[in-house]
């Protein structure tokens, strides 16, 4: 059986470190794909949860948090292998750093496509990511309807630190967990 695969600095802030605040949600892919607006509704809810305009330590950028979770949840909904499997969503707060995590279950085909794309995104600098974006758009303009630019955009435009873990479950089924770290003090 394939070993666990780690992409990027997955344990930048390990789960063993107590957070100062946490939010966990579990949704079903069937709910998301049946009523697509629910991806955005969940993302908006999470972004609003820690909102506190009076906070002097940090100002949480709701639009950025919602956009990030929306992209991660849309990917999880699209590529979940079983419609009755779970999508686990969490947000953890560590001083000025937000750790955003989305997990889903997918097929080998989608796992391999995700791994290839994520490796390229994590290993590329900003200039390379710009070229990657331009090439993807050119390819779509030429008729390619395949992989999206969501994760690429999160690193290139939002400077989020991305990482992932791929865990084999059984047969050709895998758990994919994506982490996105956002440092609010950099805003």
């Amino acid at each position: 059986m394939m070993q666990e695969i780690i992409l990027g600095d997955y344990d930048l802030i390990p789960d063993t470190i107590p957070s100062e605040g946490e939010l966990h949600l579990r949704v079903k892919p069937i709910d998301m794909v049946t009523y697509w607006r629910r991806c955005g509704a969940v993302a908006n809810f999470i972004a609003n949860f820690y909102r506190n305009p009076q906070d002097e330590i940090y100002h949480l950028n709701e639009n950025l948090i919602s956009t990030t979770f929306n992209e991660l949840i849309e990917n999880a909904a699209k590529y979940s292998t079983k419609r009755d499997s779970d999508i686990d969503i969490s947000l953890k707060l560590y001083n000025t750093i937000l750790k955003m995590e989305v997990e889903n279950i997918c097929s080998q085909k989608h796992m391999e496509a995700f791994q290839k794309s994520m490796e390229k995104i994590i290993d590329s600098d900003n200039d390379e990511l710009d070229n990657f974006y331009l090439n993807k758009i050119e390819a779509k303009h030429a008729g390619d309807k395949d992989s999206g630019i969501g994760l690429l955009m999160l690193k290139k435009d939002y400077s989020l630190q991305l990482s992932a873990k791929i865990t084999p479950i059984e047969g050709e089924v895998y758990r994919v967990s994506v982490h996105a770290y956002y440092n609010m003090s950099v805003e």
Binding site: S66, N70, E74, K140, G148, G150, M153
Partner: peptide, 11 residues
Amino acid sequence: FLNSSGITTLS
């Protein structure tokens, strides 16, 4: 809000 599919469409 505009998601990545929307950004691709505008692009």
